Amino acid sequence: MRIVMVLAVLVLAGIFAPQARAGEVCNETSYYVDAAKAWGGQNGISAQGWQRIAPGSCVRFSGVPAGVPQFLYARTSEAYLGGPREWRGLTPVCVDRANFQIEGAEDCEAMGLEVREFRQLAPSERTRAVLVEPDDFGSRALEAGVQRLLQALGYEVRVVDGFAGRRSRAQIAAFERDTGASFGGNYERLVERLHTVALERNREVGLNVCNQTSGPAGIAIARQRNERWQSRGWWRIETGSCMRVVAERLQPGEVFLFAQTIDGERSEPLRRGVEAFCVAPGRFMSEGRSSCAERGYTQVMFRPSPVPVDGVARVTLEDADFEDLVQ
């Protein structure tokens, strides 16, 4: 599930860095992020990505023309549980799943591309922009990144605050023992190794949905949260693409799934649903599963997700899974 960092904004930092390089993006969050940059021109909006930025580090986007509108989007890597976090805005831009350079694309779907909502940068942010969280880690971002990854790997880190105290040092020592490595206080090497291990462990954990139908599909899920049922959606999955819609280790019977085809104004629901939950036409989150109509929702039937294996469940949608495609 995508989690928008409502208070996490891009802040102007160029005035504090007179020697900043053109097109620089710095990461003062506690997460590894993948960033993309876009810019306007005579042929529409062009974009390039992805550049992975470690906590406390910066990267440079080259080849961006001077004096044109610029846009930025970032998301957390797959190393973290709980779903991706995004730093985004309101401008739709075509992107690819792997590294890309796109010039003036407008019809994303026709080109097999995905859409992400970029934030337009202020003119002074074009030289150097900074990604932050509500907890403004600043120069402590690297230490906070180490704590966040230790937490993602199940080590006992109660608070991510960027202060490497006794508890954090004890968990770093435990990680070194578990991996047979020693980093000697080199936090750059440590955070890189932590990220590699977390990617290997967590990138598949959760509910993964692949779309093998003849068109895009919209996905909604329902699950019990704090003893109360909650349904939410939508995730758009293009034909031939896969998406992790739940990024937590799953237990049997924990998650239910609904899908519908997307074909202009026409859509077909997923067949063989067994449990009723509430949905809405646009992006939604519904607490509870009863009285859908009275609360402005529509009641539909969800399927149980497959039994997870080691916390991972996979679903592949095909044309035969939707109502009017089977007689």
Rank of each mutant, 00 (worst) to 15 (best):
V246I: 15
G264H: 06
E268F: 13
G233E: 01
V245Q: 00
A220H: 07
A222Q: 04
V197F: 05
I237M: 03
R266P: 06
F258E: 05
P252S: 08
Q224L: 12
S241Y: 13
F258I: 09
F256K: 11
E238V: 03
A222Y: 09
R249S: 15
G215S: 13
V197D: 10
R201K: 14
R236N: 07
E238L: 15
I237E: 02
I219S: 02
V209R: 00
N211L: 04
E248H: 02
A259Q: 07
L207V: 01
L250E: 07
R223L: 13
Q212H: 12
E265P: 10
G264A: 13
G253F: 09
G240D: 02
I262P: 07
V246S: 01
Q224G: 08
A222L: 08
M243W: 01
R223E: 14
P216L: 03
W229I: 06
E227W: 13
E238N: 13
F258A: 06
N226H: 11
V205G: 02
S214G: 12
V209P: 04
T239M: 11
R232S: 12
E227Q: 14
I237A: 01
A220N: 05
V205N: 01
A247D: 05
Q260F: 06
V205Q: 04
T213A: 08
G206N: 04
P216F: 04
C210P: 03
A217M: 11
L199H: 03
W234S: 07
M243Q: 12
V246G: 02
G240S: 07
W234C: 06
E254W: 06
R244A: 02
Q251T: 13
N226T: 11
W234D: 06
S241N: 13
G264S: 10
R266M: 14
A259K: 08
A198M: 03
L194D: 07
F258L: 05
N208A: 05
E200W: 12
V255R: 07
